[in-house]
Simulated assay, not measured.
Amino acid sequence: MEKKKITRKQSVIFLLIVFVAAIVISAIIFSGNPTSPANTTPSSTAATITKAEFDKIENGMTYDQVNEIIGGDGELQAESGEKGSDIYTVSYKWDGESLTGSAANLTFQGATPKLQSKVQVGLK
């Protein structure tokens, strides 16, 4: 059986194909695929938040109480633990109304999840 010699050109073409495939796969994974669990929202459209709304939100509030202040659902960012357990944790993000890149992230925890932490960037 005779071995085929792989040419430099064939090696370069193979590496380019692998590189392009890696980029395509990465784009699919990180594109914000709407069916990904990390990108689903409780409703179809996420609400936006202002600094005044953010300041009204206090630790210990439920998601529904926060939702009432903001006027709509946030975008689910992360979820861990079993629903109904004391260690169940869920985080949501609301984009800011005023500046591109402004947002608030809120984390709820517990059997009946209550707000444990909140952080905002650039809200006005």
Rank of each mutant, 00 (worst) to 15 (best):
M1T: 04
K3M: 09
K3Q: 13
K9S: 14
Q10G: 03
I17P: 07
V20Y: 08
A22D: 03
A27T: 09
I28N: 10
I29P: 00
I29V: 14
S31G: 15
G32K: 14
T35S: 15
A38H: 06
A46V: 10
A46W: 01
A47I: 05
A47N: 05
A47M: 06
T50F: 04
K51I: 04
D55P: 03
G60T: 06
Y63G: 01
Y63H: 06
D64R: 13
Q65Y: 03
N67W: 10
I69K: 03
E75H: 12
L76M: 08
L76Y: 00
Q77I: 08
Q77G: 00
A78F: 10
E79P: 01
E79N: 01
G81M: 03
E82S: 08
K83T: 13
G84A: 10
S85Q: 12
S85R: 07
S85C: 02
I87E: 14
V90K: 04
V90R: 05
S91R: 02
Y92H: 05
K93V: 09
W94F: 10
D95H: 02
G96I: 03
G96A: 06
L99C: 05
S102A: 13
N105W: 06
F108S: 00
G110F: 09
T112G: 07
L115R: 11
Q116F: 04
Q116A: 07
S117Y: 07
K118D: 07
V119F: 10
V119Y: 11
V121Y: 14
K124T: 09
